[in-house]
C-alpha cells in the first residue's frame, strides 16, 4: 500500500495515496468531502450537464480503500453530499453501493456545511465524533487539539526540477490534521492561502497525495 506513516496526538496514522486517512489501531478509515451528487446538483440548478460519473467514481475508489484496509469503522468527515437534495437524488446504483459498503462495519456521517442535516441512509449521523484522543469534525475550530477535519480541500505545490507539481494534500501540525477532499469533482485550496496558512502552526507538514505520497514542510 502506498502511504506515508506519521504520528499525530501520539497515534500512528497512515496518509493513503488516495487521500484517505487510515488509523490502524482502531481499524478506522476516514475520508472527507466526498461531494456525492455534485454533477446532478449543478445540472439541477441550470448549470452545465457534466459527465454524471463522479459519484460512481468516488464510491469505487472508496470501496477499493475499504477492501485494501479491511476497515471496521468508516468516517465520512462532512460534505459527503453536495447538498441535502443530492443525498436523495443520487442514483439507485450509488445508493446500493453505499449500502453494500456499510454492511458489516460501523459507518459515521459527520455533518458538513453542504449536508447539515440527517440523510436518508444508514449509519450514524453526528456533528462530531471523539475516539481515543482524536476528535473528528468537518471544520477546524480555533484552539482545538488532536482534531481531524476536512472542509478546506487543501492542496500543496512543490517545485521540483523545472516543474511545479500541485497535489491534494494532508496538512498536519501539533494540534490538527486536515484531510484533502476525496470526491472526484473537487478542487483545492493552496496551503499558502490565508485561511490555511493562518490555521496551521509553524512546523506544519504537508503530505502530497498521488502515486507515491510525499511529506514536505507545508508550503506557505
Amino acid at each position: 500500500m502506498n502511504k506515508v506513516t506519521f504520528s499525530f496526538a501520539d497515534q500512528t496514522l497512515f496518509a493513503l495515496a488516495s487521500g484517505a486517512l487510515w488509523w490502524p489501531d482502531k481499524c478506522l478509515l476516514c475520508v472527507s468531502d466526498l461531494h456525492l451528487g455534485k454533477s446532478e446538483r449543478l445540472a439541477r440548478r441550470g448549470g452545465p450537464t457534466l459527465p454524471p460519473y463522479d459519484s460512481q467514481d468516488t464510491l469505487t475508489r472508496l470501496a477499493a480503500d475499504i477492501a485494501r484496509t479491511g476497515a471496521e469503522t468508516v468516517i465520512c468527515l462532512g460534505d459527503s453530499f453536495d447538498d441535502l437534495d443530492a443525498s436523495v437524488a443520487i442514483g439507485a446504483a450509488e445508493k446500493q453501493n453505499i449500502i453494500t459498503l456499510q454492511a458489516g462495519r460501523r459507518w459515521i456521517w459527520i455533518e458538513g456545511n453542504h449536508d447539515p442535516g440527517p440523510i436518508d441512509l444508514g449509519g450514524a449521523h453526528l456533528s462530531e465524533y471523539m475516539l481515543g484522543p482524536l476528535t473528528f469534525r468537518h471544520i477546524a475550530q480555533h484552539g482545538a487539539r488532536a482534531e481531524v477535519s476536512g472542509h478546506f480541500h487543501p492542496k500543496a505545490r512543490l517545485r521540483a526540477g523545472n516543474r511545479s507539481i500541485t497535489r491534494p494534500a494532508f496538512l498536519v501540525d501539533d494540534t490538527r490534521l486536515i484531510l484533502p477532499a476525496y470526491g472526484t469533482y473537487t478542487g483545492g485550496l493552496h496551503s499558502s492561502a490565508p485561511a490555511l496558512n493562518g490555521l496551521m502552526g509553524e512546523r506544519a507538514l504537508a503530505i502530497l497525495t498521488g502515486p507515491q505520497p510525499q511529506i514536505i514542510p507545508m508550503p506557505r
Binding site: F6, S7, A160, L208, P211, Q212, Q214, P217
Partner: peptide, 22 residues
C-alpha cells in the same frame, strides 16, 4: 521521472528544514 523528482525534492526540503519523516 516525476515521482522520482518529487521524492528527491521532498527529502531535500525535509532535511533542509531539519524535519525527519518517520
Amino acid at each position: 521521472a516525476e515521482e522520482r523528482l518529487l521524492a528527491e525534492e521532498s527529502e531535500r526540503l525535509l532535511r533542509a528544514a531539519g524535519l525527519a519523516a518517520s
